[in-house]
Amino acid sequence: MSGNGNAAATAEENSPKMRVIRVGTRKSQLARIQTDSVVATLKASYPGLQFEIIAMSTTGDKILDTALSKIGEKSLFTKELEHALEKNEVDLVVHSLKDLPTVLPPGFTIGAICKRENPHDAVVFHPKFVGKTLETLPEKSVVGTSSLRRAAQLQRKFPHLEFRSIRGNLNTRLRKLDEQQEFSAIILATAGLQRMGWHNRVGQILHPEECMYAVGQGALGVEVRAKDQDILDLVGVLHDPETLLRCIAERAFLRHLEGGCSVPVAVHTAMKDGQLYLTGGVWSLDGSDSIQETMQATIHVPAQHEDGPEDDPQLVGITARNIPRGPQLAAQNLGISLANLLLSKGAKNILDVARQLNDAH
């Protein structure tokens, strides 16, 4: 009898209710805020589980004197976190989706994509230029951005401005803007500013005609071990179906173009009346040469937790077992079709030249 009692006690200790789920994140304040929001949602869904947040620095956090596009290494903000995932030191990792490459290392998958916040870019102005827009900034004003995508589009749109690289986390960039006289304004992701509670610093939100956004911008991705079915089931509740389908289309477009950090590629997606609209573009580094096109596809946005595919093969690095396969494939095909259209119009040449120029500098 006593033996059975011990077995029952052991089973209770090993039951999922007692389990601590370890969540990996970057150390920056924004990353911690984003991770806290994901953990809060998981806690609400699984009140019996405990969650421990483990923060670590990544290569991208450490190399702050070089433009991201020049470092010449993929997975700048993800490699150390993936290493911890691989060694079973954490069970899942919360990322900004735009930091996750469209091809993940073997053994990993994006197990959830959370509801997207505003994906557009924002302009934050130096205190002396508050009330201005990019259009009304004085001639030769210097605007800071760490992104080739932003610089290429904005140089084309605002030729009277000069664009220079600015690195560091959000706090560091804002301090550089406010305390030094080098920059009249800087460009940042609206979602990051909003998550930090800095709505009052948003001086201008850039519309798609001015600057399309990065693939996955404004959404959070939760990376897990691809074979860890328990954790895949656990994080599945975080999937937002519309965000998922938009981001599958965007990531398929980028992957098929073979774009990345070192080339200016941008997108804009919208879901309306059962249609998914995808606009994508590529630019030369100075913005003088560009190709942009829009395509659409009829896609039914499923309700969360309709029964999805059981075999769960990944699409552009994403596993969404609780979302039907048909809409996911339709979104992926839309991204591939748009990429093929741009490639047929000469996108590869623009991107190759951009890559060579970026590598040469």
Rank of each mutant, 00 (worst) to 15 (best):
H126D: 09
Q356I: 02
L76M: 13
V282E: 00
K62L: 04
L234D: 05
Q314H: 10
F183V: 12
G216P: 00
N340I: 15
T41G: 08
T319M: 01
T58A: 09
F129S: 08
I63P: 12
A112E: 02
V265H: 00
L154G: 10
N340T: 10
L343W: 15
L276W: 02
K62N: 15
V224R: 04
T102R: 00
N88C: 13
A55W: 08
E293S: 12
T78C: 14
E242D: 13
V282A: 10
H207A: 14
N171D: 14
D352Q: 11
G107S: 10
D228A: 12
E242R: 09
K62V: 14
L206Y: 02
L174F: 14
T190P: 06
V38F: 05
T133K: 09
R251K: 12
G287Q: 00
Y213E: 14
L234W: 11
I231C: 03
M196I: 13
Q275S: 01
A122I: 04
G335D: 07
S284V: 01
H207G: 11
P313Q: 07
G48A: 12
P47A: 06
L329M: 15
A44T: 12
L342W: 03
R325N: 05
D121F: 01
K87L: 11
L278F: 09
H120A: 05
V124W: 05
L104D: 05
L134P: 04
A191I: 00
H300F: 14
A151Q: 14
Q304L: 05
E306W: 11
G218H: 01
T298V: 12
E139P: 01
G259Q: 01
K87S: 13
L154E: 02
T58V: 08
C114E: 02
F163Q: 10
P127R: 13
N171A: 10
K345A: 14
F253K: 00
H95P: 01
I54Y: 11
G218K: 01
F163C: 11
K227M: 05
M295I: 14
V103M: 11
I63V: 08
I54N: 07
G326V: 10
P127D: 06
Q194L: 09
L137S: 07
E135F: 11
A44H: 09
A270M: 15
V267M: 15
L64C: 11
L329Y: 06
M56S: 14
I63C: 11
T136V: 10
C211S: 11
E86A: 10
T133E: 12
T319L: 01
A219C: 02
L85W: 02
L234G: 04
H120S: 12
T78R: 02
L285R: 10
R251D: 02
H95N: 14
A191P: 01
E179M: 10
I205R: 07
R246M: 09
G280E: 00
P105R: 10
L234A: 14
T59V: 08
V235E: 06
Y277H: 15
L100I: 14
G346F: 07
Q217P: 08
D307A: 00
L245Q: 09
K70S: 07
H120T: 15
H199S: 14
G192N: 02
T41N: 09
K272N: 15
T59H: 10
I350F: 15
S262L: 01
E306Y: 05
L161Q: 13
I336L: 04
H126L: 08
R195L: 11
G218L: 04
D312T: 01
D228R: 13
R325W: 13
A339V: 11
E89T: 10
L276E: 03
N349Y: 07
L351Y: 12
D240C: 13
C114G: 07
G259D: 11
I113G: 02
K140R: 12
C114K: 08
K87T: 12
E89Q: 13
T109F: 04
